[in-house]
């Protein structure tokens, strides 16, 4: 945005717009009540991503952030920010922006660090927004930046140090302005006849895809879109297979099981209605998980009878990952 905007023009428009009722821009209707400093302070939570303006006093360390993150964030975003199910991936992906399937994370995509503070304070945790203290937000921000190798493990962030961080993709954006639209000009013309050879060539046909909700109850075979909540789209079935053939770490499997299975299958189930582990199957230690790997394969990978009614929303990708881990010997190292 040009800082040399013609203010006179804006003021002129204002005067014109209200001119029919109020003779000049100096006059007002006068409705509403003056906002007091205290009232404004309670609501004025925005932080400017570019300048850091609005960052409050306080501080937090990576170590403090890890504890908060594991307790309040990891259920959706994964202990290492890898994301669970369709929840956003927060870490990794650097260098992937030109890939066929870019992984857009805080580290690979976000241009400004203070934006992270602004967003977490106003909107996270997802089910309990605006419950973290400013110190806690600084700590969680520090941990997420550390997961992305942007700050060291001993970092302590406050308003000044957070605003000073230059994000890896800081220069990755081309902004439009009111005067200039940065979108590529396609120079399209409206040809009316014999515009291309006949017959036309069909380059994409979804007949075999069957992911539309009217066609399948729970389509999960292939999405190419990313909505705001899902930072990576569901891959087509083919790439689920491909990713499943890569080595799967036990940490990944344990994380899936912790979220999707151990709410019931634990010594002390957290799922309402379960006083003890169903069938005595407990999946809360590496040894116990390894011991029932064959059952996991039968119930959660093959027949998909588990989780019951998929109450914990286990995804096809997660099932494939567990299948790959079992196929590779169900190792806990």
């Amino acid at each position: 945005m040009s800082k040399s905007l013609n203010i006179a023009a804006v003021v002129g428009v204002l005067a014109l717009l209200v001119g029919t009722t109020i003779a000049d821009a100096g006059q007002r209707y006068g409705f509403g009540q003056p906002a007091t400093t205290a009232e404004i302070a309670g609501w004025d939570i925005d932080v400017n991503g570019l300048t850091g303006a609005g960052l409050p006093p306080g501080s937090g360390s990576v170590a403090q952030g890890q504890k908060i993150f594991e307790a309040k964030c990891a259920a959706c975003h994964g202990v290492f920010g890898e994301g669970a199910g369709r929840y956003p991936v927060l870490a990794g992906g650097q260098g992937s922006l030109t890939a066929d399937r870019p992984v857009k994370t805080v580290g690979s995509y976000w241009p400004y660090a203070p934006t992270l503070f602004d967003y977490i304070r106003r909107a996270m945790p997802f089910t309990a927004p605006q419950t973290l203290s400013n110190d806690e937000v600084y700590a969680v921000v520090a941990y997420i930046l550390n997961l992305n190798n942007i700050v060291p493990s001993d970092a302590v962030l406050d308003a000044k140090s957070l605003a000073a961080i230059k994000m890896p993709n800081r220069d990755g954006f081309v902004a439009s302005t009111w005067e200039h639209d940065s979108r590529p000009n396609l120079h399209t013309v409206a040809c009316m006849s014999d515009c291309k050879p006949v017959p036309v060539n069909v380059i994409s046909d979804l007949v075999s895809l069957r992911v539309t909700p009217s066609e399948t109850e729970r389509g999960n075979a292939g999405s190419t879109v990313e909505l705001e909540t899902s930072s990576s789209a569901a891959p087509p079935a083919a790439s689920v297979q491909a990713s499943a053939t890569k080595p799967v770490s036990f940490a990944q499997v344990r994380h899936i099981i912790a979220q999707r299975c151990a709410v019931c299958h634990a010594e002390k189930p957290t799922q309402p209605g379960f006083a003890s582990a169903p069938m005595g199957v407990m999946l809360d230690t590496p040894q116990r998980i390894q011991a029932v790997a064959a059952q996991i394969e039968a119930q959660a990978v093959k027949s998909q009878a588990m989780p019951l009614g998929n109450v914990t929303h286990m995804t096809q990708q997660e099932r494939a990952l567990m299948g790959a881990w079992i196929a590779a010997g169900a190792k806990t190292e």
Binding site: D46, V47, N48, G49, L50, T51, V106, W110, D118, A123
Partner: peptide, 11 residues
Amino acid sequence: EDPWETREETS
């Protein structure tokens, strides 16, 4: 004076 560069207009 400046745009906020919020999460909804950056990431």
